[in-house]
């Protein structure tokens, strides 16, 4: 780890100003920063410690919205009774992520900004080519071992999966990221790789995540986060779905539905085609199965010769369908 200078910000303004310096990175819980520093991907010259900014870990919730400060710990949000009641999918996405020790340290802002687990991205000493790290250098994952790589939102420049669970739940419920000077929907906050995989979010130098706000809704209250993986705990999703459902008074017609996918896309992936296919329809095994399939429209798998990821195209719709059935009482 190379030497860096360390400064502690006592206010948002101070932090944002400090972050304008070249080579600056912010330190909150530290779980991602340390990880990236150890594998040689994150090499800050300046570490701006924002963890002591007072009040930035607040969680407040009323009938219209929840507001979560950037420094709130994952465990604090996951266990918050009002969050559990109004946004069960959000609480579950957190408690199913990482390990208890990490959840006790990691913050909400840092969670959103966690970086891909693509092994080629994380091994710069061996794999020089990575368009995320070095724009224009190429993509080592293409033609490599791609079992955990994305099938949605990929480009010829990058197929790295966005690994987080929380952002998947947030994008389903129209959450908004507060960047201090401006607010951006979580869906727009994250960028698909396109031809600039190094740009993962719209955040610009001098900006920081201050908090996240989440509008309440009937669909959010009746929601679930379903995460499928080989290991029961402490593994990133093979496929996950954040799903919320509101039915009409008849108990079967869909009034509102939210579907977002994790573990299969280059960014937190809102599956609007699934939602559109269900709204106004009766929720049945058939409509659910048909709609869930739409979640994979546009999906591209990597060749099976390299331990490919085609299974995600089969798996993700099943995850979406299971979550919908569970919420709709069909399971």
């Amino acid at each position: 780890m190379r030497d860096f200078s360390y400064s502690r910000a006592s206010s948002i303004e101070e932090a944002r100003k400090a972050a304008l310096q070249a080579g600056a990175m912010m330190l909150a819980g530290g779980t991602t920063l340390l990880d990236l520093a150890k594998c040689g991907v994150g090499e800050p010259d300046q570490v701006i410690d924002i963890s002591h900014i007072i009040g930035l870990d607040a969680i407040s919730i009323d009938e219209r919205a929840a507001t979560i400060g950037a420094l709130a710990k994952m465990s604090a949000v996951a266990d918050h009774p009002a969050v559990l009641a109004a946004f069960p999918a959000v609480a579950q996405s957190l408690s199913l992520a990482a390990s208890q020790q990490l959840r006790n340290m990691a913050t909400i802002g840092g969670n959103l900004l966690q970086r891909t687990r693509c092994p080629y991205f994380r091994d710069p000493a061996t794999f020089a080519a990575c368009n995320k790290r070095e724009p224009g250098s190429g993509c080592s994952a293409l033609g490599g071992v791609t079992r955990n790589h994305a099938v949605l939102g990929t480009s010829e420049h990058c197929i790295a999966t966005y690994p987080g669970d929380l952002a998947t739940a947030l994008v389903a419920f129209d959450a908004v990221v507060d960047l201090g000077g401006r607010s951006v929907s979580v869906e727009d906050f994250f960028l698909a790789p396109g031809d600039t995989p190094d740009r993962e979010t719209v955040i610009t130098p001098g900006e920081m995540i201050v908090g996240v706000s989440l509008p309440t809704s009937a669909a959010a209250r009746n929601s679930t986060y379903l995460k499928v993986r080989d290991r029961q705990s402490y593994e990133f999703a093979a496929a996950s779905a954040a799903v919320g459902l509101e039915l009409e008074a008849d108990g079967k017609t869909v009034r509102d539905v939210r579907v977002a996918l994790g573990g299969v896309a280059t960014k937190p992936w809102r599956a609007r085609e699934v939602e559109q296919a269900l709204i106004g329809k009766a929720l049945t095994d058939e409509t659910v199965t048909a709609a869930a399939r739409l979640s994979m429209n546009g999906a591209v798998a990597q060749p099976a010769s390299s331990g490919g990821n085609h299974y995600k195209i089969e798996l993700a719709p099943r995850v979406v369908a299971r979550a919908l059935r569970t919420l709709g009482g069909l399971a």
């Binding site: 687990r117 092994p119 091994d123 080989d230 290991r231 029961q232 705990s233 402490y234 593994e235």
Partner: peptide, 15 residues
């Protein structure tokens, strides 16, 4: 390429 305990999976207590 999965030369770390995040990517080389061994059972957790839950398993």
């Amino acid at each position: 390429i999965n030369n770390n305990v995040g990517d080389y999976l061994v059972p957790t207590n839950s398993d």
